[in-house]
């Protein structure tokens, strides 16, 4: 039997993965919501996507769905995010939405509502391609 190599060997210049590829481990309805956002640029469609990203990187799963938490829920104190998990959410969102999030901006984001509002603001003006 011939075992296969890791596919890490593409000699072509590095490319970041497509958004479809980045979303492939999310539930179908989340992928659908993201496609709606891509087609319409309507930030409302992003709300379930943001929650799904948080749910994906949260260090310890919550007992009830994140969508049931009030907007004032704090990411660190209430949901148990640590600074590393937050940087992972930021990195993933930057890549997916083609935005850049600065450290100072990040310091202002403490709650679910902060995060939703912040990402909405970031994607509202059509991002530079």
């Amino acid at each position: 039997m011939e075992s296969s190599s890791s596919p890490s060997n593409d000699p072509a210049p590095p490319k970041t993965n497509s958004s479809r590829d980045k979303m492939r481990h999310f539930p179908q309805e989340i992928q659908e919501a993201f496609r709606t956002f891509e087609a319409t640029r309507n930030p409302d469609a992003l709300d379930p996507v943001i929650l799904a990203i948080l749910d994906d990187f949260i260090p310890k799963k919550t007992e009830v769905p994140l969508a049931t938490f009030p907007g004032s829920t704090r990411l660190i104190e209430d949901l148990g995010f640590d600074s590393l998990a937050i940087t992972e959410v930021v990195f993933f969102s930057e890549e997916l939405l083609n935005i850049s999030i600065g450290n100072e901006e990040l310091m202002q984001v403490r709650t679910l509502d902060d995060l939703r509002g912040f990402i909405r603001k970031k994607v509202s003006p059509a991002p530079a391609a």
């Binding site: 039997m1 011939e2 075992s3 296969s4 190599s5 890791s6 596919p7 890490s8 060997n9």
Partner: peptide, 26 residues
């Protein structure tokens, strides 16, 4: 096991001590 490094059948190195049941494809 026989192992193809870098997906390159032309490489002369063809054998590795593999870890069965583990996979890290990306």
């Amino acid at each position: 096991e026989r192992h193809q490094f870098l997906n390159n059948p032309d490489l002369p190195v063809k054998v590795a001590g593999t870890l069965k049941g583990f996979s890290f494809p990306s």
